[in-house]
Design a protein around this nucleic acid. Sequence first.
DNA 1: GGCGTTGGATGCATGAATGTATCGGATACA
DNA 2: TGTATCCGATACATTCATGCATCCAACGCC
Lengths: 207, 207
Amino acid sequence: MAAGPTAGRVTRRRVRTRANLLDAAFEVFAAKGFGRVSIEEVCDAAGYSRGAFYSNFDSLDELFFALYRQRADMIAEQVATALASDGPGLDVPAAVDRVTEVLLLDRDWLLVKTDFLVHAARDPEVARTLLEHRARLRRAVADRLARARGHTALPAVLGSIDGAAHAVVAAYDGVTTQLLLDRDVDHARTWLGQLLTALLTDGSTRH
Amino acid sequence: MAAGPTAGRVTRRRVRTRANLLDAAFEVFAAKGFGRVSIEEVCDAAGYSRGAFYSNFDSLDELFFALYRQRADMIAEQVATALASDGPGLDVPAAVDRVTEVLLLDRDWLLVKTDFLVHAARDPEVARTLLEHRARLRRAVADRLARARGHTALPAVLGSIDGAAHAVVAAYDGVTTQLLLDRDVDHARTWLGQLLTALLTDGSTRH
DNA sequence: GGCGTTGGATGCATGAATGTATCGGATACA
DNA sequence: TGTATCCGATACATTCATGCATCCAACGCC
């Protein structure tokens, strides 16, 4: 952890600069990628000097980690609230629309998240954080599916509701990859909708 | 492009060192990630000095690009042959097994591929190369599905055979992400099998 | 096997990023 | 308003990677 006062004295100024550094870092990381960003670039973008940085963080890695947590928490909350509302029936298209609005909101977040994935893939400690985030998303989905049980059928191949939730996250990951490459957000949204429909609804209409 | 002889004279030695550099680069990139690797590290791993590197490549980026093309071609070919064989009927579990054997062969390739994705996401030129690779995979899958038409039903939500092929690749991407995080190859294989089954076969058995 | 060409090794100069130590100004609290 | 503390700026030393220019050895071709 960074230095910080031993306990009290949460200086107003400090939280502001910390937030500014995180915001600037998000921009810069999204634009150039974690591996190609220097500490100084972040500081320049935020309008501070390196002294400010080292006063708040120990390394770029730590900043990156903090940044991910901050944004991931935000997203997870938004998804949860987007799914928590309305009754027991599951209107798949409507629910999908609401969720994709959040999950595929901006490409910048996907870029940063994928950078973080690459990071996590080589550090089990970091991986745990990312897995937790995914678990939160899954839980939100599973909760929603559980309330819809009996109203809507699920494919048996996926096993439990938990399996279905896993599938939803996998579909999200798959569409993310495609979106990162073709930059077509609208197409990604409809495509994710189709995928989820294929996975979650009765697919008896076949050809 | 790197210097290289003006035209002829493809020195035997040259191709060998180039191949050695590429192999070493694969190891090093997989282990540390593209963003954290220096030219000298690659040279050390390959047993050459930087002079050899600059004689064969102009930059780390170019080496990385060449490395990706090399491996991607290999994989695409393997997948195509794994799917081209046997008759018109589609035995999903068997086909899936054969393909996952290739696609989820080693984690190192997935690591490098994801690094490359991050790279491509910020450079449309590079993205095109990756999209071509994915298109080749899709085509192999679509060809296989086309031959199975009439023998097996496909979900209508996915639209055409091409849509189904897209879905297969998306599932692959989704499982890749999960595998990078939990490092459980066996689980990833069975999980990919379930997903593909859910996407491609008649899901009339529901609960 | 000799000779001209090519490939790779070595040494050096340059630029950039990092981390730290120190200093001046802002901030919170009495 | 005064003062002790904290925060961020500046300057510096150090390390590291890069790219080039030069040199020796291996190679291909006759």
